[in-house]
Amino acid sequence: MQRGSQARKYRLQGAGLDLALPYLMLAPGLTIVLGVLVYPLWDGLRASTRAYRYGSPVADVGLQNYLHLWSDAQFLNALWVTVKFVALSVSFEAVLGFALALFCLHEFRGIRLLRTVLIIPMVITPVVVAIVFRLIYASDAGMLTALSKAMGGGEVQILGNPLNAFIGLVALDVWEWTPLMFLILLAGLQSLPHEPFEAARVDGAGAWRVFADLTFPMMRPVLAVAIVLRTIDAFGTFDQVFVLTRGGPGEATRLISIYGYDTAFKFQQTGYAAALFVTIGLVVLALAFSAIRLLRRVDAS
């Protein structure tokens, strides 16, 4: 079967101009990608081995920029904040999204409204999501303060306090991206086979047994895909932090992307920032590929 379709594909290729067709069809897209993405990627690698002054390279420094990263307390802090942010946000999103998907599995009135409304957070411009949360957190005009005052309390301080600001950022991410988890996991749940669940019901298994012995094990691959997708995405989070806290107060919400941006555009350390971003790119790629390998093994077993 496999060989048959292969042969047919060769036959389809024909002769003359048709032989060059695949290359002609790939060429425009590849040209754009090579020019605007791949060349800059290579250029970034080159920049990462240089020292810059006022935006122009002044010396080759080899791997010094990369080595310097690991003794830079601000970089290490940004890395730690990012890891904390990603781990916390994605965990909450996975748990809440899974619970919500299980809840919505049974059709009932209002479910279409729920699904429609849940689309809103993830399609709103991230910059606007940050504005929404600034309006919630603001100590003078914010929703939390207004609610607190309506109940006889005082001003609520969120963005001025390091711990609260960090939690506030995680809450923003959870609000924005739990719906995505929910959609992926709901689709996964809906594609599970019915028979095992019928059998369990006949055997009189309780809801918790069904979940622990059937639903969860069968959902593990989908759950893994969803978590990997979100993790990769969360590592690059920038817009929301830039508008909500700009990394502050102090360094409490300064993610790696914000630190890199400031290093490049505020402090003009182009080479050092390039090394930082190359490192982050490698980390994310390593993460993605080990996740893909892991998933393949799960699929195979």
Binding site: K9, Y10, S257, G281, L285
Partner: peptide, 30 residues
Amino acid sequence: RFRLPFAAERKVGLFLLTLRIIPPVVILIP
């Protein structure tokens, strides 16, 4: 649809996916 020498078409596909995975902020400076 096409099968190119050295499975080039699959490599191009994988290459584009790899570019998609890298966070955009990585190539911001260049």
